[in-house]
Design a protein around this nucleic acid. Structure first.
Lengths: 135, 135
DNA sequence: ATGGGTGCAAATCCTTTGCATCTGC
DNA sequence: GCAGATGCAAAGGATTTGCACCCAT
């Protein structure tokens, strides 16, 4: 049972949301903070963290795991897949849906003993720049 | 092009590897450190971190992402999938392979522009205990 | 003796929290 | 006036690093 309550956003939250929605990459909290500071120079880092959490909780954005740089956020909340560069760590969107047969998902969920909510495919490999640099 | 060079492991590294291989869950560095201390009481945390990195680099174990507790390690290096509890954050193995059609993978990799190495399906939902507690 | 591994402590980095203040309603 | 949001600084927690020391070769 999902309980998502979207509350009205104040102007600070809107500014943060804007940044995340515009970002094509998957920015970290620090990157979002830097970007937001150009618009609201006196916003503090702590507020950015608090706002990001509340935006994620309300379903406006999504947290998509951490890497060595920290937690990353995604403005695209619809189901989609990601590719991770095993060399530089870049996290890219997969622009097409990786179709996984529904019955395979259900069987796997049953086997793992979980009540399936959603899923994601992660591709690991070399991103364009790392592929050429390594070839 | 993968370059994995397995060097001979010294006894400390073997002790750490043993812990990770035996662990059925996906322990964090701290948990591994605690476990290793029962066998080698004077090993330091820094050494555990150094050893874990080198074991992962050499392909003995695998790093499988971070959560609020830190980086988690997996002794199972063969391709397999994971389930994440959206309530308590538990990270479980999926005991069956989620079969993703090879052509879907290739098409997705091409679309994302990466040279595909491997992949993983992540299931999100409620683990057994959270499901009953929430129902 | 020599290079690598080790323990310890200090340093880093991301994130959270306490608290006094400010804001909008 | 009050509840919630904010900035700042301090605290917290995971991970890394500097460094002197020790060990096996």
């Amino acid at each position: 049972m999902e309980t998502i309550t979207k509350t009205k956003l104040n102007s600070n939250a809107q500014a943060v949301l804007h940044i995340v929605l515009e970002a094509h990459n998957h920015p970290t909290a620090l990157e979002i903070y830097e970007a937001v500071k150009t618009v609201r120079p006196n916003m503090g880092l702590a507020s950015v963290y608090r706002i990001l959490h509340s935006l994620a909780e309300q379903g406006y954005i999504r947290e998509i795991g951490r890497d060595e740089e920290g937690n990353r956020y995604d403005g695209n909340t619809s189901r989609h897949d990601h590719a991770v560069c095993t060399n530089c760590g870049a996290l890219l969107d997969v622009p097409v849906d990786v179709h996984v047969p529904a019955d395979a998902l259900e069987q796997a969920a049953r086997a793992a003993g979980i009540e399936l909510g959603s899923y994601e495919v992660r591709l690991y490999g070399l991103c364009p720049s790392c592929a050429t640099r390594t070839e």
